[in-house]
Design a protein around this nucleic acid. Structure first.
Length: 255
DNA sequence: ATGGTTGTGTTACAA
């Protein structure tokens, strides 16, 4: 079973890129972020016609996440628990194909310090609490998404250039480590070492120069990690016309 | 060199 995560940076602007990727790669489960539309604007029929079931948690203009699955989807939870006043659509959790998955669009947090950085850290504290709850069920779980955290300097083409960015701050990194230290596996780290980027800025020819960072992650519960067969980062969609600034990150789980 | 680009939706804001 192939599970992929991809920040598409607007599902409507990216529809040709996303549908050709689905046709080529054929993920069983796709975890999407930054769909940038309300549910009514989501091009559902394009995915249903390809055999996917959907859960969409949209928002006007910003954020928004979705799960596509070739299996029936149960137990869908839209919105990260822990703050009833939080209007931002950044989290869906659901059970499908015998695994639990989450699609996560963690707040960027820039500029920092500031209100946006405080929101990011508060959101991460809620994610820590939710992860602890889900892990207590001892299921195979894949928490995938745009975490907006560069885990270590080796995940960044130029750590000095990102030293003041919210994505590298000790407060962001330590919260990600708290999640990993609960026993989750960073899937890409299993069979790759060194820089392995998932995002390249649109500006200043970052893609052409491979000035990338690794911020899109698949974090696996022990029961999911035991089934891990292979992982990868598919650079092909980033090289095409009108690309997202992120590219898909995937893992394959066996029986 | 304090730049550069993309998307949404309006001429600003977020990334």
């Amino acid at each position: 079973m192939k599970i992929a995560t991809w920040n598409v940076n607007s599902i409507r602007a990216r529809l040709p890129r996303v549908t050709e990727w689905l046709d080529e790669f054929s993920p069983d489960i796709a975890l999407l972020q930054e769909i940038k539309t309300v549910n009514e604007g989501f091009p559902s029929t394009e995915f249903e016609s390809r055999g996917y079931n959907l859960v969409v948690h949209g928002q006007k203009s910003y954020n928004g996440v979705a799960i596509l699955s070739k299996f029936p989807i149960e137990d869908a939870l839209c919105g990260l628990p822990g703050d009833d006043g939080d209007e931002q659509a950044r989290y869906i959790e659901a059970f499908t194909g015998g695994v639990r998955v989450a699609t996560i669009y963690l707040p960027n947090g820039n500029p920092c310090p500031g209100e946006k950085f405080d929101y990011k850290l508060g959101w991460m504290d809620r994610l820590i609490a939710r992860t602890r709850e889900v892990l207590s069920w001892e299921e195979a779980v894949v928490f995938g998404g745009d975490y907006n955290v560069i885990p270590a300097d080796e995940d960044c083409y130029d750590p000095m250039a990102w030293a003041d960015d919210a994505l590298t701050q000790p407060e962001s990194r330590s919260r990600l480590r708290t999640i990993l230290n609960m026993g989750l596996t960073d899937a890409i780290r299993v069979d790759h070492t060194g820089p392995y980027y998932s995002y390249w800025d649109y500006k200043a020819g970052a893609w052409q120069k491979d000035n990338g960072v690794r911020i899109d992650h698949l974090l696996l519960s022990p029961q999911a990690a035991d089934r891990l067969v292979q992982t990868g980062i598919d650079r092909a969609p980033r090289a095409r016309e009108k690309p997202s600034d992120h590219t898909p990150v995937w893992c394959e789980l066996g029986e």
